[in-house]
Design a protein around this nucleic acid. Structure first.
Length: 829
RNA sequence: GCCGGGGUGGCGGAAUUGGUAGACGCAAAGGACUUAAAAUCCUUUGGAAGCCGCGCUUCCGUGUGGGUUCGAGUCCCACCCUCGGCACCA
C-alpha cells in the first residue's frame, strides 16, 4: 500500500518541527546580509480572509527564499489591535473590547500558524498592549514638545441624538449611521499632528522611492497636492481690513470681477455688519456653515452666494470689485478667499452666469490676436496670451505670472507662495478602544503633558459600553480626575484617544526590538534591520497609512532614533481578491473561508493556488476549480516521489559534473538549469510568482516524460534524483510542508528550510541549439535549428536554402535579409 | 470633470529589451483502466478554409480605427469599454 498524500498530518508535523527548532527566529548575526520582509499587520476582526492569505503567502515566499539564499531574515507579524469594531462589538454583544480583541487574536494566530508562514513568533506585537501604546504616548509627547502636536478648534460631524462625534465614513447621506438622525457640524477642540511641516519632504522623498508602483506615488502626490502660485492682498474699500487670496493664475487677475470668501471666513460677519439686510444674510451664512461638508457626498451641489455690498481694490489696476460670500470656496484651503475670474475658471464662470456677474476675457489662445467680442460658452482655462491686462497685455501666461508676481513683491501687495492640499492630521477620537492621549488639563497650569516616567496612561478596564453617549472614558471618574503633574492641583485627564493610524505608523520599528522597555525601540537594532527591504500590502493603504508611516519615520529620524528617511524603499501593492467579479464581502455573500480550504486541500495547495492564478499586483479572481488543479499537481508530485523513492537509495555517482550521454538526459538537464534560473529571477527580480510556479510545473512535466527512458540506466537515475531534488528546493517557498516531508523521505537530514537555494550552471541554462525563426516579409514561414551563436553568413545561407523559403522566393533576389542573432531571419522581398 | 491602471482563446493568465501570440493551469471532447462510477493516466483543443485524408498547407486573429517599422500584444495618435483614486483644492 503506497502512502497517500496526507496533507493534514504532514502540515501539522512540520509546523511543530519548525516551531520546536526555532527555524524562523531572526538573529542579528555578523557575516550575513540582512533582509527585512514585512507584510502589513492585520486588524484582528475575527478571522483571516483571502486578502490576508494572499498578502502573507507572497511575503512568505520572499522570506523563505531569502533565507535559503543565506540572508538573516526578519519576518515578523503582529496585530493592529485597537479600533472601532471592538467597541461596536462591546456595545452590541456586551463583550469587553479587550476580551473580544484577545479572542480574535488567539483564533487568527492559530489560522496563520496553520498556513505555515515563517514568522518569528517571538517578536509578535499587539498595539493594544500597554507596553506598545505607551510608546505611542511617548512619541506624542515628543511631538507636543516640538510643536508638532497641537490643539485646535475644528469642525467635526456631530450626531445630536447620540451625542458623539462621527467619523466621515459614519455619516451616510447626511445622517448618523446608527440612529439616522441628521448629522450636524460642530466646532470642537481636537488634537492635530503637524504633518504639513513635512509636506515638502514627503513629496520630494518620492524620488527615493524608485521601487514603488508608479500609481501609488501619483496618488500620494495628488493627495499632498502641491501648487505654486501667488498670494495677492486686496484692501477692502473704506476699511482697515485686507483680503488675501491665493492664485496659481495671477496672469488672469485683470479678469477678476469679484472676490469670493468662504462662509466661515473670519471676515464674513464683519463685512455684513453694515448691510441693510444683515439678519437675512447672516442667517444664510450660518446655514451654509451648518450644512458644510454634508454635501461633500453630493458633488452636484448648486453654487450659491450673497453680495456683501462691500468692495475691494485690485492692486494691479486699482479697480473696485464686489465682495461675495459663496458656498464653493473652502475655508480650509489657502486663505479661504479667492479672486473670481469667470472667464478663465469653470466654477467662477458657472457662478457668474447664475448671478449675472461680469465675465471679462483676459487670456486668448496663443496665435489668436484678439478674440471677437463673442459669448464665451465655457471658461478658457489654459495658458495663452494676455489681453486687456494693462502693461502685461501681449505677454504669454507663464511669463506674465513671473513678472506680475515680481511686481507684487516689489510693491509689497503680494508674494510668491506654495500651497499644499495636505491637511494636518486630526488624531482625536472620542472613543475608548484607542491609545489615551497623555495630556492633563489643569485649572492653573492649562494643558500639561503627562511626564514620561508616568507612562503609560493605561486604559481603565471598568467601563460601560452603551453606545448612547460620547466617549465612554468621560464617565470614568477614576480616570478623568487626576492631579496636575506640575502643581499637584486638581486636574482633568484628556479622554480622547488616538486615531489607530498612529499605532501603525511606527510598528515596523518596534519589531526590531519588540521587548525593549526603555524606549520605543533599540536604535542599534533599528539601524541593523531598517529600512524594510520589502513591504507588502493592499493598495487601499496607498495614501493614509503609507503617508503617515513615512511621516513618522522622518519624525523619529529628527528625534535621533534612526537615520532612515524612508521606511519602505520597496513597496509591493498587492491586488484584491475577488469572486464573481466583485470584492469578497459578507454583504455580497461571496466570501470563501480560508479555514475551509485548508481543511479540504491543505495549506500548501491554498498557498500555491493563490500565488499561481495571477501575478501579485493584479486582481485575483477566486475559482474553486483552479484550486483543485493545484491540489492535483501536488498529488501528482507526491505520487511520483513515492513511486521513485528507490532512486534515492542507490549510491550512484552524482551527474552534476558530467554531461548526460543521451538526448533525453541533455534535454532534462538543460531544463533543470533553465528552471532554476527562471524561478530565481521571477522571485528575486520580478515578484511574478505565478510564472515561477508554472516553470516548476513545466519541469515536472518534462521529468515525467523523459524519466521513462532515463530511469533505465544509472546515469539517468542520477539525473532524475538531481532533478527531483531541484524541484523540492524550488517549490519550498510555495509548498514548504510537502517539500519538507519529501525531502526527509528522500533521505535528507537537514530541513529543507535550512538548505541553500540551488544555483544554476549558465552553460546548461543556455540552449546549445537554438530555433531560428525564418520569416518572409515579416510572416513566419519556417524554422531552422542551428548551433547557438552560429556565424551570420551561415544562418542566412541556411535560411535561404530552406525549401519552403525557396517556394516564396521564386527565384527572386531578396531586397534585404535581416538577422537577429539566435532569434530570427527575416527575408524582405 | 481630472489623474492612473487594464482590455489577449470558453475561463485565470503567459509572451521579461519591438522578434515563433496563447507557456502553465482550468474547462471541454475522445480514449485507457473499471461490472460501473469517482479518482488516475493518455490524446486533442484560438477561428476559418483546403488537401487522396489523421498530418500538413493557406488565410484571419491580442477592444476599435489609423500610423511608425523588415517586423507591433508590445511604440505613437485618435476613439470605445472597464476598474481604481481624487473630486468645488482657487
Amino acid at each position: 500500500m503506497k502512502p497517500e498524500y496526507r496533507f493534514r498530518d504532514i502540515e501539522a508535523k512540520w509546523q511543530k518541527k519548525w516551531e520546536e527548532a526555532g527555524t524562523f527566529a531572526s538573529r542579528e548575526v555578523e557575516g550575513a546580509p540582512r533582509y527585512y520582509c514585512l507584510e502589513m499587520f492585520p486588524y484582528p476582526s475575527g478571522r483571516i480572509h483571502m486578502g490576508h492569505v494572499r498578502n502573507y503567502s507572497i511575503g512568505d515566499v520572499i522570506a523563505r527564499f531569502k533565507k535559503m539564499k543565506g540572508f538573516n531574515v526578519l519576518h515578523p507579524i503582529g496585530w493592529d489591535a485597537l479600533g472601532l469594531p471592538a467597541e461596536n462589538a462591546a456595545i452590541k454583544h456586551g463583550v469587553h473590547p479587550h476580551q473580544w480583541t484577545m479572542e480574535n487574536i488567539d483564533y487568527m494566530r492559530s489560522q496563520l500558524k496553520k498556513m505555515g508562514f515563517s514568522y518569528d513568533w517571538s517578536r509578535e506585537i499587539s498595539t493594544c498592549d500597554p507596553g506598545y501604546y505607551r510608546w505611542n504616548q511617548w512619541i506624542f509627547l515628543q511631538l507636543y514638545k516640538r510643536g508638532l502636536a497641537y490643539r485646535k478648534k475644528s469642525w467635526v460631524n456631530w450626531c445630536p441624538q447620540c451625542q458623539t462625534v462621527l467619523a466621515n465614513e459614519q455619516v451616510i447621506s447626511g445622517c448618523c449611521w446608527r440612529c439616522d438622525a441628521q448629522a450636524e457640524q460642530k466646532e470642537m477642540e481636537q488634537w492635530f499632528l503637524k504633518i504639513t511641516a513635512y509636506a515638502e519632504e514627503l513629496l520630494s522623498g518620492h524620488e527615493k522611492l524608485v521601487k514603488w508602483p508608479e500609481h501609488v506615488l501619483i496618488m500620494q502626490k495628488n493627495w499632498i497636492g502641491k501648487s505654486e502660485g501667488t498670494t495677492v492682498s486686496f484692501p477692502v474699500v473704506d476699511r482697515e481690513e485686507v483680503i488675501d487670496v491665493f492664485t496659481t493664475r495671477v496672469d488672469t487677475i485683470y479678469g477678476a470681477t469679484f472676490l469670493a470668501l468662504a462662509p466661515d471666513h473670519p471676515l464674513t460677519l464683519k463685512l455684513l455688519e453694515r448691510s441693510p439686510q444683515k439678519d437675512r444674510l447672516v442667517k444664510w451664512v450660518k446655514d451654509q456653515i451648518a450644512q458644510r461638508s454634508l454635501h461633500r457626498e453630493e458633488p452636484e451641489e448648486r453654487k450659491e452666494g450673497i453680495d456683501t455690498g462691500q468692495r475691494a481694490v485690485n492692486p494691479y489696476n486699482g479697480e473696485e470689485i464686489p465682495i461675495w460670500i459663496v458656498n464653493y470656496v473652502l475655508m480650509d484651503y489657502g486663505t479661504g478667499a479667492i479672486m473670481a475670474v469667470p472667464a478663465h475658471d469653470a466654477r467662477d464662470f458657472e457662478f457668474a452666469r447664475q448671478y449675472n456677474l461680469e465675465i471679462r476675457e483676459v487670456i486668448v489662445p496663443s496665435g489668436f490676436a484678439e478674440r471677437e467680442e463673442s459669448e464665451l460658452e465655457t471658461a478658457f482655462e489654459e495658458y495663452g496670451v494676455l489681453v486687456n491686462s494693462g502693461p502685461f497685455s501681449g505677454l504669454e501666461s507663464r511669463r506674465a505670472i513671473e513678472e506680475m508676481t515680481k511686481l507684487a513683491e516689489e510693491k509689497g501687495f503680494g508674494h510668491r507662495s506654495i500651497l499644499y492640499r495636505l491637511r494636518d492630521w486630526g488624531i482625536s477620537r472620542q472613543r475608548y478602544w484607542g491609545t489615551p492621549i497623555p495630556i492633563v488639563y489643569c485649572q492653573r497650569c492649562g494643558v500639561v503633558g503627562v511626564p514620561e516616567e508616568e507612562l503609560p496612561v493605561v486604559l481603565p478596564s471598568d467601563v460601560e459600553f452603551k453606545g448612547l453617549e460620547g466617549s465612554p472614558l468621560e464617565k470614568v471618574a477614576s480616570f478623568t480626575n487626576t492631579t496636575c503633574p506640575q502643581c499637584g492641583g486638581p486636574a482633568r485627564r484628556e479622554t480622547d484617544t488616538m486615531d489607530t493610524f498612529f499605532d501603525s505608523s511606527w510598528y515596523y520599528f518596534r519589531y526590531c526590538s519588540p521587548h525593549e522597555s526603555s524606549q520605543p525601540f533599540n536604535p542599534q537594532l533599528g539601524a541593523y534591520w531598517m529600512p524594510v527591504d520589502l513591504y507588502i500590502g493592499g493598495v487601499e493603504h496607498a495614501i493614509l497609512h503609507l503617508i503617515y508611516a513615512r511621516f513618522f519615520c522622518k519624525v523619529l529620524r529628527d528625534l535621533g532614533l534612526t537615520k532612515e528617511d524612508e521606511p519602505f524603499p520597496h513597496l509591493l501593492a498587492q491586488g484584491m481578491v475577488t469572486k464573481d467579479g466583485a470584492a469578497m464581502s459578507k454583504s455580497r455573500g461571496n466570501v470563501v473561508d480560508p479555514d475551509e480550504m485548508i481543511q479540504k486541500y491543505g495549506a500548501d495547495t491554498l498557498r500555491l493556488f493563490i500565488l499561481f492564478a495571477a501575478p501579485p499586483e493584479k486582481e485575483f479572481a477566486w475559482n474553486e476549480k483552479g484550486i483543485e488543479g493545484c491540489f492535483r499537481f501536488l498529488n501528482r508530485l507526491w505520487t511520483y516521489f513515492i513511486d521513485h523513492l528507490d532512486i534515492f537509495e542507490e549510491k550512484t555517482a552524482s551527474s552534476t559534473s558530467t554531461a548526460p550521454s543521451s538526448d533525453s538526459g541533455r534535454r532534462l538537464k538543460t531544463k533543470v538549469h533553465q528552471t532554476i534560473k527562471k524561478v530565481t529571477e521571477d522571485i528575486e527580480q520580478r515578484y511574478h510568482l505565478n510564472t515561477a510556479i508554472s516553470a516548476i510545473m513545466e519541469l515536472f512535466n518534462l521529468l515525467k516524460k523523459e524519466g521513462e527512458t532515463l530511469k533505465k540506466n544509472p546515469e539517468g537515475r542520477a539525473l532524475l534524483r538531481e532533478t527531483m531534488e531541484s524541484i523540492l528546493l524550488l517549490l519550498n517557498p510555495f509548498a514548504p510542508h510537502l517539500g519538507e516531508e519529501l525531502w526527509a523521505m528522500t533521505g535528507h537530514r537537514a530541513m529543507l528550510a535550512e538548505t541553500p537555494w540551488p544555483k544554476f550552471d549558465p552553460q546548461w541554462a543556455e540552449e546549445e541549439k537554438v530555433t531560428i525563426v525564418v520569416q518572409v516579409n515579416g510572416k513566419l514561414r519556417d524554422k531552422l535549428e542551428m548551433a547557438k551563436d552560429s556565424e551570420d553568413r551561415l544562418v542566412r545561407e541556411e535560411a535561404l536554402k530552406l525549401p519552403k523559403i525557396q517556394k516564396y522566393l521564386q527565384g527572386q533576389t531578396p531586397k534585404k535579409v535581416i538577422y537577429i542573432p539566435n532569434k530570427l531571419v527575416n527575408i524582405v522581398l
